[in-house]
């Protein structure tokens, strides 16, 4: 039996199809664009093309209520923990999800959420922050993360994205190298995430990273260093929410 998970995030929509709640049969990612309703429709077209339509479906992410063909909407917190279970086992560990517009810290044990935190209405320490800074530096976010590896010495003090952007602009003006500025940007994100992590987890707790940023090796390294514990990830980690949703859909429909 197939089950479908649709994760409509603020920047990207992720789709995962599971077979019998075990094998990942299909997965893909696409930009959310300005209308989550249109994105949901595009996903449906894709599902039909691939012959998965009609399978039980759960939606998650900030656009979770705009997926008319989903039987249920479940928050990204619960879905990430479920998907984390699929990728990293039952725990206990702390799952960090750096998403497009928010960062979530989730304490997982026995495959279920024990406690969680989300950043306030502010984009510091999120994918959005990285994106804006990358834009200012005229590179793409993945490139920024790799440039950061060769940089040092710069710190960005402002927590507010708008002020941080002008800080970056004046750094460019003062002749700082792209590498050093990139270093400062990543450092700022990692610091913000670490301070949130510290509010929920004891030092050295096992830690896993999900969300778009986990594809950058340097982010993983920098985060591991800051948290004092190796941060695990997986090539499928950005699909954690969608996989979790598909698992919930499977769990509620299997006989």
């Amino acid at each position: 039996m197939y089950s479908i998970g649709v994760d409509i995030g603020s920047t990207c929509a992720k789709l995962a199809v599971l077979e019998d709640g075990q094998e990942l049969a299909f997965h893909t990612v696409m930009p959310t664009g300005w209308s989550s309703g249109n994105t949901a429709q595009a996903i449906l077209d894709l599902l039909e093309e691939r012959g998965f339509q009609g399978a039980p479906c759960v939606a998650t992410g900030y656009g979770r209520r705009n997926v008319p063909y989903a039987q249920k909407a479940v928050t990204e917190i619960t879905c990430h923990a479920k998907g984390g279970g699929f990728l990293f086992g039952e725990g206990p560990y702390v799952l960090i999800d750096i998403g497009g517009q928010d960062t979530k810290i989730i304490a997982v044990s026995g495959g279920a959420v024990q406690d969680f935190l989300m950043n306030d209405k502010c984009s510091a320490g999120t994918g959005r922050f990285l994106e804006i800074m990358a834009n200012t530096l005229c590179v793409d976010p993945a490139r920024l993360c790799e440039l950061a590896r060769a940089g040092s010495g710069v710190s960005i003090s402002s927590m507010c994205t708008v002020f941080a952007e002008s800080e970056v602009i004046s750094l460019i003006g003062s002749g700082a190298s792209k590498e050093d500025i990139a270093f400062g940007v990543v450092d700022s994100i990692v610091n913000k995430v670490a301070s949130q992590y510290g509010r929920l987890a004891g030092p050295g707790s096992a830690c896993c990273l999900t969300g778009g940023l986990c594809e950058s090796p340097y982010i993983l390294e920098a985060l591991s260093k800051k948290l004092g514990t190796p941060v695990r990830s997986s090539p499928l980690a950005r699909y954690a929410g969608a996989i979790g949703a598909a698992l919930i859909a499977y769990g509620e429909n299997k006989r």
């Binding site: 900030y62 479940v74 928050t75 990204e76 917190i77 619960t78 928010d102 279920a112 959420v113 024990q114 406690d115 969680f116 989300m118 306030d120 209405k121």
Partner: peptide, 15 residues
């Protein structure tokens, strides 16, 4: 902050 509060509250209840 309605969207964020809703996600937090819903996640809490799911937990």
């Amino acid at each position: 902050d309605l969207g964020q509060l809703t996600t937090r509250i819903a996640a809490f209840l799911e937990m």
